[in-house]
């Protein structure tokens, strides 16, 4: 036997080791020392540390998820802003195009009116000229007719008619 633990046990009576009462005191004392030591290590160091690691991990994961949600919200907002800007730009472009079209239409209309007015003026002037010319021509026609009628009568009868008679005759003809 490589032991001297049970020297109190009389030689020859071998007690089953777990029931040797003389070892109980030493085992209980060592158990108390080491188990209380383990308890202190666990409660003061191991449990706060491992609990802290897990809490930090849970925080990190939830924080990352929240950040991802925030980023998604930001990108959604950016997309909405982009779409709004696009719609605004489109609307403004349409408005601008309509305005330009209206302006051009108005301008063209004005030009046309002015041109028409000018043309009408020219037409009226031309008509006036024509009327004046016609009147002048008609007056000339009367003189020519009087002269011609007097010349014709002179040739026929050999004597110049009285100019008042010729005028009366012309006027009589022109009245018909």
């Amino acid at each position: 036997m490589a032991t001297n633990a049970h020297t109190e046990v009389p030689a020859g009576t071998k007690v089953f080791p777990p029931f040797q009462k003389d070892t109980f005191a030493s085992q209980l004392i060592w158990l108390a020392i080491f188990f209380i030591g383990l308890y202190v290590l666990m409660s003061r160091v191991a449990i706060p540390r491992i609990g802290g690691i897990m809490a930090a991990r849970a925080n990190k994961i939830s924080g990352d998820l929240a950040e991802a949600a925030r980023f998604k919200q930001q990108s959604d907002a950016a997309l909405a802003a982009y779409e709004k800007a696009l719609a605004d730009a489109r609307a403004r472009a349409q408005a601008l195009a309509a305005e330009t079209r209206d302006k051009l239409n108005a301008l063209a209309e004005g030009n046309r009116k002015a041109l028409e007015g000018k043309l009408n003026e020219k037409l009226a002037a031309a008509e006036k000229t024509i009327a004046a010319t016609k009147t002048a021509a008609m007056a000339n026609v009367r003189g020519i007719a009087t002269d011609t009628a007097a010349a014709i009568v002179e040739r026929l009868i050999g004597a110049a008619p009285a100019s008042s008679a010729v005028d009366a005759a012309i006027a009589d003809v022109l009245k018909r």
């Binding site: 030493s26 060592w30 080491f34």
Partner: peptide, 14 residues
């Protein structure tokens, strides 16, 4: 009180 094999293996466990 002696340091024993039991105490040694308690220490190992801790």
């Amino acid at each position: 009180i002696h340091f024993t094999n039991s105490a040694l293996f308690m220490a190992v466990a801790v």
